[in-house]
């Protein structure tokens, strides 16, 4: 050290002072930051925050769609109420629980299938072969087609009398008589899963592919030199390495599947037996004009999805803590 102490009298405050703490560059940048995000924040608050708050508020009222301004606070009655020896409200409604079950089943089955198939597609696209770019574009097409359009296309293909699927299966001898796929509650959800898998496998595949392409190639070369079997390499090396990306993809897909609306609404014609949570809530809200009940259902959906998000975020934090990287 040279000359330390020599400048003690130079008026240099050793302790941080309010004014001297930040240069005007930092100050102007922070001011700019708030100015720059303000418009987005205001818009998001207006079109997401406020409507959400109002929906939650409506869930405690008896509002109806034709007279939205005219309502009374009724507490938790939309959720659950005891009256005349019977239970009322959404939580006592078998149709609601049925829609919850439908949604959970749909989410679990379709996301699982998409993960497995997406992995297969990703592994194929990760191999070098002529036409890989074209193949990648081809699998993107189902993803880009509007859900309504895909639902209609599949509706037509699954038509009980004139549908190509029944025709194909009859020709192959797999079924004895035409199956009314979308009209039958048992098969309708399977049909919805099929369309969802058709549409979203590519999303899963592309996210997995991105993770695969970030893996260091030398690991594979080393494994090849050591003569490790490809299956073993996949299970012991590839899977653990892409697990974080895979989890992200699964979470995004699950959150998306939990709020499914378009597909089920169009494919199964708004039927009660196959309704998803979102379909049920909209039915109460718009078709039956019961804004209070519909809002209660919507609030529950929000809570369920928020719960899933919180759990995954918490789990994610724990994992991050353990991750040495």
């Amino acid at each position: 050290m040279i000359m330390s102490g020599a400048v003690a009298g130079a008026g240099a405050p050793v302790q941080v002072t309010g004014r001297g703490r930040r240069s005007s560059l930092t100050r102007s940048r922070i001011r700019a930051a708030w100015l720059f995000i303000a418009p987005s924040l205001i818009v998001v608050a207006l079109i997401a925050g406020w409507p959400l708050a109002r929906t939650i508020w409506f869930s405690f009222t008896d509002a109806s769609l034709d007279a939205l301004g005219d309502y009374a606070f009724i507490g938790l009655e939309n959720y659950l109420a005891h009256d005349d020896g019977g239970w009322f409200g959404i939580l006592a409604e078998p149709d609601w629980w049925h829609s919850v079950w439908n949604t959970l089943w749909f989410t679990a089955v379709s996301v699982s299938l998409e993960t497995v198939l997406g992995m297969v597609v990703a592994l194929i696209l990760n191999a070098a072969f002529p036409g890989r770019g074209l193949m990648r574009a081809i699998i993107l097409i189902p993803w880009a087609i509007p859900t309504i359009v895909s639902a209609k296309m599949w509706n037509w293909m699954l038509h009980d009398q004139f549908g190509v699927i029944n025709d194909l299966l009859l020709r192959l001898g797999l079924i004895a008589a035409p199956v009314p796929w979308t009209a039958n509650a048992d098969t309708a959800l399977w049909a919805a899963v099929m369309v969802d898998v058709w549409k979203h496998t590519s999303f899963m595949a592309l996210l997995i592919l991105a993770a695969l392409q970030m893996l260091p190639q030398d690991i594979y070369e080393a494994a090849k030199v050591d003569g490790v079997s490809p299956v073993r390499v996949f299970v012991r090396v590839t899977l653990p390495l892409i697990k974080p990306a895979l989890l992200v993809a699964v979470i995004f897909r699950s959150l998306d599947a939990l709020r499914v609306f378009d597909l089920i609404y169009v494919l199964t014609s708004n039927a009660k037996e196959t309704a998803s949570m979102s379909v049920y809530a909209r039915q109460q809200l718009v078709d039956f004009q019961e804004v209070g009940l519909g809002s209660a259902a919507a609030t529950l959906i929000f809570l369920i999805i928020a719960l899933v998000v919180v759990i995954t975020l918490a789990a994610g934090r724990v994992r991050l803590g353990e991750d040495p990287r």
């Binding site: 130079a10 240099a12 941080v16 004014r19 001297g20 703490r21 240069s23 005007s24 930092t26 102007s28």
Partner: peptide
């Protein structure tokens, strides 16, 4: 970068707070 403490002079002028 922001100066946490101390002074910086360029050409005799304190420039801590200048862009």
């Amino acid at each position: 970068e922001d100066i946490t403490a101390g002074d910086l002079f360029i050409g005799g002028e304190r420039v801590n707070d200048r862009v």
